[in-house]
Simulated assay, not measured.
Amino acid sequence: MASYLLKMPLSIRTTVLRQVGLPLYNTSHGYHEEEVKKTLQQFPGGSVDLQKDDSGIGILTLNNPSKMNAFSGVMMLQLLEKVIELENWTAGKGVIVRGAKNTFSSGSDLNAVKALATPEDGMALCMFMQNTLTRFTRLPLISVALVQGRALGGGAELTTACDFRLMTPESEIRFVHKEMGIIPSWGGASRLIEIIGSQAALQVLGGALKLDPTKALSIGMAGEILQSSDETKSVEEAQAWLAQFVNGPPEVIRALKKSVCSGKELYLEDALQNERDLLGTLWGGAAHLQAIARKGKFNKL
């Protein structure tokens, strides 16, 4: 639960959560986004690509295969741009995050890591990525990380920003931060606790454990192990898996995701109020009335 939300009066917190794109950090925290963007622009390489389908499912691809899809500075900037694009995609219902060439992501590009060596640099990068991934987690889209190959370090953290994780048979997730002399800084530790609990998270982080699909499934890290390791086939499997949860009108799926987000981040009173207000946008609407009409016909059979 975000600490800054808990410090706010009850009447304000729900409004804050509804504001799409609200960052965790701003100048009051000593965070200056435009300065961070200028710094990140100095580290080119790779791209983050977004394909939006008429079905309402988008595919977000990390594309830097020569470096195991590690995030360059430019890719971090592009990730924020794609998140903003998804925030404004009113027809969207779901998104799949994957890496190009059958591997997920090895985290941060070491060239950028070596150049950004001061504690101040690390804190600025931390705040930028936490802002971006928090906005991603709050998207009114059901999100899936398709883990093909390896998801290491920051790549492992990115998987925790998704609602679900699907793994191909030969893939792995590994939080290698301890071996790099740091801790997760993109929000991965906090989100990992939500997913698998504090004791299991401490084991995974403290042991820098390799989570193969079977282990990840057993501790609740993975939602399912896909049948194929083939890049194209596993994407198709992931699309079919996600389709079962986003079948329906966009306004209903998006409201469902918003209600779950508020339930995770807000006190019960605020979450209930948000649920009430979301219902008010749907009750008596086209999807609701059509469903009632269909149910009425079914009951007469």
Rank of each mutant, 00 (worst) to 15 (best):
K7G: 13
S11P: 00
I12M: 09
R13E: 05
K38C: 12
Q42N: 15
F43R: 07
P44W: 14
G46Y: 11
S47F: 14
V48K: 09
D49P: 02
D53M: 09
I57K: 09
G58N: 13
L60Y: 10
N63Q: 15
M68F: 14
F71Q: 08
I84W: 05
N88G: 02
G92R: 12
I96T: 04
D109Y: 02
V113M: 07
A115W: 04
L116F: 03
A117F: 13
P119N: 11
G122V: 01
L125E: 14
L125Y: 05
F128T: 00
Q130W: 00
G149F: 01
A151F: 10
E157P: 10
D163K: 03
E172F: 14
A189S: 06
R191L: 15
I196L: 01
S198D: 15
L205G: 00
G207R: 08
K210N: 07
D212C: 01
P213M: 00
A222C: 05
E224K: 02
S228A: 08
S234Y: 11
Q239C: 07
Q244N: 08
F245K: 12
P249A: 12
K258Q: 15
L266S: 06
L268E: 11
A271G: 05
L272N: 12
Q273S: 14
N274S: 15
G280F: 10
A287L: 11
K297M: 11
